[in-house]
Every structure is written in structure tokens, then in C-alpha cells.
Design a binder for these strands. Sequence first.
RNA 1: GCCGGUGUAGCUCAGUUGGCAGAGCAACUGAUUCGUAAUCAGUAGGUCGGUGGUUCGAGUCCACUCACCGGCACCA
Length: 608
Amino acid sequence: MSDAPDSPAGPLYRIRHSLAHVMAQAVLEMREGSTLGFGPPIADGFYYDFILSEPLTERDFPDLERRMRRILKKGQRFYREEVPVDEGYRRLEEMGEPYKREYAEELVGKKGLESLTFYRSGPFLDMCDGPHVDTAKEIPRDAFRLRSVAGAYWRGDAKNVMMTRVYAWAFADKQALDEAVRAYELAQERDHKRLGRELDLFTFDDSVGRGLPLWMPNGTVIRDEIEKLAVELEFRAGYQRVATPHIAKSSLYDQTGHLDHYRDSMYPPMEVVEETPEGETVRETYMLKPMNCPHHHKIFASRLRSYRELPLRLAEYGEVYRWEASGAVSGLLRVRMLSMNDAHIYCTEAQTQDVFREVISQYDEAYRILGLSNYYIRFSRWDPEDPKGREKYVDAPEDWRRSERIIADLLEEMGVDYVDAPGEAAFYGPKIDVQFQTVTGRDESLSTVQLDFAVPPRLGLSYIGEDGAEHVPYCVHRAPFSTHERFVALLLEHFGGAFPTWLAPVQVQVITVSEHFHEYATGIVSRLREKFVRAELASESDTVSKKIRDATTRKIPNLLVVGERESAAGTVTLRRHGVKAQATMPLEVFEAALLDTIARRTLEFVMP
RNA sequence: GCCGGUGUAGCUCAGUUGGCAGAGCAACUGAUUCGUAAUCAGUAGGUCGGUGGUUCGAGUCCACUCACCGGCACCA
């Protein structure tokens, strides 16, 4: 049995779990008549869910923490009690714990338990499987801290009541707590929303609408650079670029199945009414596209296709619109206008694995260039048990099994470690998602590769096979850079706003020591701009110190300081962001190294 | 969508028990031309998120609403 701190047998797990009970005890003291949900240990601490008799806010935290410490000081013991099921039920009813009572019944039903386990500590009694510490003396009084209060549905189901969840940090000692809190605070400084404002990358405006980002010039540079990279990777892999409208008739989405399975995520239809010269009224409804695939499918369908054309790779730098739930919208991570470097690859069933392999290796290449490694692979499958099955997925069990087999075999063959995720499939097929964590610890899907068996037949897509007969193609959907919104958010947090030179909105800033060197400096700027380098001259009415400070705050990767020495010798003094050492070199030498680092998209600019 | 919190100048934030809306930074103007993280002086900047209400009087109290933040649900 493992004794890792976060495994159930480990001491930290017991401390966190027991602290959850102590917190619940304190909450029940403060809010008599409240009832309990679940209160498990989690990474960094624990939480407990309550139905509160009176609301609790973060303003109550000092009081709540004080009560918890008082309880800990008493050093009460934790007693395990096993009681027969019927007595357990009676207890829970007497305790006035309807949710625990409901759960107990489910446990008994599913696991065939003959007894229920309770833990008693002081006046607090809770149905709980443990394990716990033996006595509260084992719990350090200075290594926990209440963190936030949040809402959470009972059993994680939106149809159930909303409980109040109190989150807390908890560790084995004060130092570990302080470190975690400090790390959290540092992470806040890397939050993409904050950096986006500080670096002038994007903004939102109430009068434009929620979740609709406005990209500023600086942010647009980053989008454009990512797109350039995508265009290159795709060109080499034989993709062909297409462009399609942002809207389509709603009848298209009826055919594809979007209206059946995806309607909630779509903006409502717009109705256009036209009068014909004959006085007839013609009504048509259009919808904003939530995905590019239907349009691409129509390009595929525009003429007869031969197996010789497959795999046919259609790529589009397109914007799609999704009606995200209001509470889900968040910065650039969840938006209602999504920019995607999207592509659809039409292929035969036999080609599918190769197509997936090709796409995955392209992802590896893109992540390598950007130095991204903090992600994991998720195999998102159909869940036949999903109660919302009809609503969520196309109903074709055999196709699901077949398509999932193709992906599972491939993952197996490639030796990829992945998390199995039933219930996370797209409505039209299984997919491989790349998951990453934001600096604030939220898990988000990034890139995705999806196998679509459902929509091509619905739209009657076909190609003529070697046998001269018509066949329905598979379609592989892929978006290596997620949405540009989410991807820029990830990059911002990943680089802490200090982008490598090739991505930086301003790549070089020239700083004059005094305005006597204006001419030399503007010469450098225009020479670099001639080579498409994003170079700028710093304001000349400030002191050198001020200009350095401003450029540093803006995290500009390369500063060139020029004064008497440089202008006389035709050199520049290079100051790199975050690097103390400076070097003076001929302008041509700097320029060559700069153009090289940009062309190769290196993460580090190695000085000549 | 749900639970809770928060909205004061471009940004960060003050604003007593209801009584004339403030600071720093940024911006703008002028002076300064300076060798590595903030030169000096001045000017301008606001329907206190919005609407309605209570009041002699509302940034402050009440109702509704919008947006944002922390979560849950949903998802790229």
C-alpha cells in the first residue's frame, strides 16, 4: 500500500479529511440546522458541501478558522463506528441529514453493504468511510487556510439542489501552506486576463457583448504568428485552404444533426423575410456557424470525388460562434466567438489511422516549437450509460464501437498514455483531446482530433472507390491550436507574457541615450522594419532608465541601446528581457542573429 | 443556467453615521537630452456599471438589471 501523502493511506490525506470534519463541525456550530453533503480531501486541501441555514461568506472565514483552531486545540479523538444498515439509516434521519441518508441507501444498494461506517469526533458525527487521524493533535493548527466559498450541485448534477462549498488549503506544515499560497499568488500574476490588459492584447466591451473579444494590435500579432505557423505546417502536409461564410441556413444544421444535438450551444436563428415581385412572402432562417465542418462538407460534396483524392485535407482559418452558458464565459478561455485553425480531412476507413498519426505528429511538432509539455491526452468516448445519451450523441452504437476501436488501437500502437473519458465524445464521434491546466489550476481542453462517422452520411457525402462503387468517407476534424483565443491564453500564461522574439508584438525596441542619436536610431528601426521585424523607437523625451523600465514592463524581448559609442562604431548594445549580461555588436551581426531566431522560431535568442 | 462575491478616472485603489467625488500611475502640454527599472512642472480626465425607488439631499439605503471574479453544471 502506498504511503504517498495524497493517497488514502497517507498522513496528509488523513489530515485533510479530518480537517474537513473539523470545518463541518465548526460550520454546524455557526449555522445550526445546516445539513451536510460531501467533504473530501482534494489536491492542496479539502472542501465540504453544505445546505446552510444562513448563508456563509468569506467575511465569516476569520470566525470559522478561529472555531476550527479551538476545536483542534481540544485534541478530540476520531472514533470509527460501524453500525448495521438499519441503525445507520435511523441515525442519519435523527441527525437530519437527508442527503447522506440518500447516499447511504445508494451505497447499500450498489455495494450490498451490511453496515455503515461513521466517524465521531467530539460532538460531530458523520457517515464517512475514513480514514482519519486518531486524534486532532495530529493536525497542525497553522497549516490550513480557508480559501473560498462556492456553489456546487449535490452529486455534481445540475438537476439537484445547489449546495454551498467551502474550499480550504491544508498541508502537513505551515511552510508547505505558505508555499502553496505564495505559488497561487504568483500564478495570479500570470493570469491571462491580467496580462492581456497589461500588454494591451485584447479587451471586451459590454456594448459588443459578453464573450466577444476585441483583439488589439498587439494581440492580433500573436494570432497572426500562430496562424502563419499553422499555414506552413499545413502546406507541407498537403492541406488546401478554403474560406466559407459565417452563416448558413438552419436547414443545413437540421441535416447535420447540430439542431438535434448542439442547439443549446448555438445562437438563435435569424429570420429574413423577403417580398417577391409577385407579392409573395419568402421566409428563410439562417444561423451563425458553431463549427466549420458543415460548410467544408459542402465543399467536398460540390463535385464527384474519387478515392484518388483521399485523404482530402481542407483547412480554414475560420471564426465560429457558440452560445456558451453565461457562467462559463471566462476571459479568452471560454468565448462566444471562437477563431479556429480548423481542418477537415476526408478519408477512407483504412486511411483513418494514418491520418490520425499524421495529425498527432503535427501536434507534437507545434508543441515542441512552443515548448509546451504540461498536457495529457484524453480519449473522449461515447458513454452508452449516459442518461442524456439521445440528446448528446448520435444513436448508432455499432458505429461508435467501430470508430472507437480505430482510435483505441492507434493509441495502443503508438504507446500513448491517456486518460479514458467516457461521456466526453463529440456528438458525431469519438476524439482525442489534449488537456492542459491553466495557471489557476483549471483543466481545459486544448487541441483536439475527432473522428466523425455520423455527419458525412447524413449529408450524403461519397466518393467513388477503386471498385467503382460509391462509399461514404470518414471525416477527421482537427484543430491543433485549439481556438486562437484559448491558445493565446495558454501561451500568455506559459510565457508569463514574455514571448519569444518570433511571437512578441514588439520584437525590438531601440532606445537612444539622447536625442542626438535620433537619426542613427530611426535608421536602425527602418532597416529592421524593411525586413519585417516589428521594431520601434522608444519615446525620446524620457530618461534612459525610464525607457528601460517601460520596455521591461512591456516584456519586449530585445532592447537596443544606442548612444555615442554605438553611433560612432555602427554597433548596437543588446539588452535581452530577463537577461543581465549585455553585449555590444555590429548592427549587421545583431540583425543576422535576429532574423535567424525569428525564422527558426526559437524560444531562446542565442546571442552571436 | 445555478450559488456566492465585486463594480468609483485608461489601470490600481481611497471615499467617515446619507451632506460640494479624490490619490498614485498612465494620457496630454511644456521644459529637460540624460548610458541601463520611474526627470520636473502644468493640464485634462467621472451620468460613481445601468434603470427605477426612498429621501430636502444617494457613490453611500432599497429593488431590478448588466458585466466581471470564485466555483458548480456545460464545453474548444
